[in-house]
Design a binder for these strands. Structure first.
Length: 214
DNA sequence: CAACCGATCACCT
DNA sequence: GGTGATCGGTTGC
């Protein structure tokens, strides 16, 4: 049994995700991403969401859904509140949450969390030594960036693509402990070429665990 | 410390 | 056969 660190933790319901991803993204900042390891010993991994990006279902050429529904991106067109995990650059996974009612695409990409529980496990998953996470800089490199985040939490496409996030017993879910960011900053999205001018990246202003300062 | 480069998978043309 | 919502190591100021 893992000692609960967070009190009064509420798992976000499916209705939370059934809205415009720009609204969902803003409200996701400050929430807690919880990953439960059920293989072997029970353990919780968690972190506070401090950086996200939005990909729109319409008028956004950078979105995987831009050219319509395919086998790869079908989760985006399915019911809200499910994980869309894809593999990129031959090396990394990225985690997204499907938004909008069924039939409409639109999602939020998780770009960075501030780690809270299970840092030792995350370091091992990332191939980092124990002393590697003794500094704040080291801890930042654990989970800052979409690929690092997935590696730290052991999130793969095979295991999580299409997985529901809104059940209290979901291996991956979002919890609300009541914390709210004081200020949210908007910027352009990172690492894209099409529709790159849209201000669809949202960060907790001043947080040191975001992947890239502007 | 910025700039480049290699890794090498899933998808789409 | 080209490209990408990335990262980490190396190079060279």
């Amino acid at each position: 049994m893992v000692k609960p660190i967070l009190r009064k933790e509420r798992v976000l319901p499916q209705s939370f995700y059934a809205r415009d991803p720009r609204i969902v993204a803003r409200e996701l900042l400050g929430k807690i991403l919880v990953r439960t390891l059920t293989h072997g010993v029970q353990q919780r991994l968690s972190g506070r969401i401090v950086e996200v990006e939005v990909y729109l279902g319409q008028g956004d050429l950078a979105a995987h859904s831009a050219a319509g529904k395919t086998e790869r991106n079908q989760v985006l067109f399915g019911p809200p509140g499910h994980a869309y995990v894809y593999f990129i650059y031959g090396a990394h996974y990225c985690l997204n949450f499907s938004c909008m009612p069924e039939g409409n695409a639109g999602c939020v990409l998780l770009r960075s969390i501030e780690p809270i529980e299970g840092l030792d496990w995350m370091a091992k998953a990332r191939g980092i030594s124990a002393e590697g996470i003794s500094s704040e800089t080291g801890r930042r490199l654990l989970t800052a960036g979409p690929g690092r985040l997935c590696q730290a939490l052991g999130i793969t496409r095979k295991q999580f693509n299409g997985a529901p996030l809104f059940r209290p017993d979901s291996d991956l879910r979002i919890a609300d402990d009541g914390w709210r960011p004081r200020e949210i900053a908007e910027t352009e999205r990172i690492g894209i070429t099409k529709s790159s001018h849209l201000p669809l990246r949202y960060v907790v202003a001043g947080n040191r665990f975001v992947s890239k300062q502007r």
